[in-house]
């Protein structure tokens, strides 16, 4: 019993995000003119999975008390690369996918290498590398366009057995293949330790540098998977700075809504997935309730601000004022 209470307390943020998502999605579906059909679910999940992947990517550096402001740019870079490389036969398409994922992981590794060995702050490093990755994306695709292997794309954005959206299955597979093994590996637990207290982690023999390197590399990889899925949705590539910026910002918001602490050492990528779902459902809700488009940006902004302000509840629990400054 005590164990259960501990687990609920430990995953409070995650449970809140799941609850919020279920409530909002129910409202959305019950007000949707068609209701919950496979097509509605597929469209919703295709959009939501993109942000969910970028939010997962953002979670890993945040857990080490870092931040990756280049996730949106890596996302866009993967989109542009995929629109050039993932073409031709199915075999060539898969080769292209491998190259795109490798490029994403490399971009993440470069971030990590500069942060770990160059000893620069994550914020400023990823701002600068983000500009570089965006430049490369522009170089690959100066104007919107390109193509993608349509068999793979149709499969990835369609339905399995005519009911289950494939994008959700892909997301689940990534959780099972990437996140859970990572979470339980030595380097994954090291990432949490580094986020809680880097010096204590170092003194205890935790591989601090390798943990950070892996966190940023995996972040690049996950963002690139997101970029691939974007290409499968749009059948084209576009080096758009606004899209990159929006995804970076929303990824941070999703991480916070999902219960991960921006101060590191606390949270999970699964929370971020539901945080992303919540953010996406807000947009869909605005659509079904037919809100005046002029009001939409303001409404989204206020919801975003209100969502992150939930973090202020922490202040109420603090007894000793000095802990405020931690």
């Amino acid at each position: 019993m005590n164990d259960l209470r501990h687990r609920i307390h430990h995953n409070g943020g995650l449970l809140a995000a799941i609850g919020l998502f279920i409530v909002m999605f129910t409202i959305y579906v019950s007000n949707h003119p068609v209701g919950l059909t496979a097509a509605v679910a597929t469209t919703a999940s295709n959009k939501a999975v993109l942000l969910a992947l970028v939010a997962m990517a953002q979670t890993l550096p945040v857990l080490t008390r870092g931040l990756d402001l280049s996730v949106g740019m890596v996302f866009i870079l993967a989109n542009c690369l995929a629109s050039v490389l993932v073409v031709g036969t199915i075999g060539e398409g898969f080769l292209g996918i491998a190259i795109v994922l490798g490029a994403g992981a490399l971009a993440g590794f470069i971030n990590g290498a500069i942060i770990v060995w160059g000893r620069l702050q994550p914020i400023i490093t990823t701002l600068a590398t983000g500009a570089v990755y965006y430049g490369i994306a522009l170089y690959v695709r100066p104007g919107p366009g390109g193509d993608v292997q349509s068999d793979i794309a149709d499969f990835a954005t369609g339905q399995l057995f005519g009911v289950i959206p494939t994008a959700l299955v892909v997301l689940l597979a990534i959780v099972l293949i990437v996140w859970l093994p990572y979470r339980n590996s030595v380097l994954g637990r090291a990432a949490y330790a580094v986020g809680s207290n880097e010096q204590a982690a170092y003194m205890s023999g935790v591989p601090v540098q390798r943990a950070k390197l892996l966190a940023y590399t995996l972040a690049g990889l996950l963002a690139a998977i997101g970029g691939l899925m974007l290409t499968f949705n749009t059948y084209s590539g576009e080096a758009s700075a606004p899209i990159a910026g929006t995804y970076t910002l929303n990824s941070i918001a999703a991480v916070v809504i999902g219960g991960t602490s921006l101060f590191g050492g606390w949270g999970s990528a699964i929370g971020s997935i539901f945080g992303a779902f919540v953010l996406r459902t807000i947009e869909d809700l605005l659509f079904v309730f037919d809100l005046d488009p002029l009001w939409q940006p303001l409404f989204q902004g206020v919801v975003l601000l209100a969502a992150v302000s939930l973090g202020a509840l922490r202040v109420l629990r603090i007894r000793n004022r000095l802990e405020l400054f931690a």
Partner: peptide, 24 residues
């Protein structure tokens, strides 16, 4: 200062709110 939210995330939210206000 008072809500003790990370400035990065709070100012980001404000940016979105001001953008919404200006669009309106």
């Amino acid at each position: 200062a008072y809500l003790r939210l990370p400035s990065m995330i709070f100012t980001l939210g404000m940016n979105a709110v001001v953008q919404g206000l200006m669009v309106l």
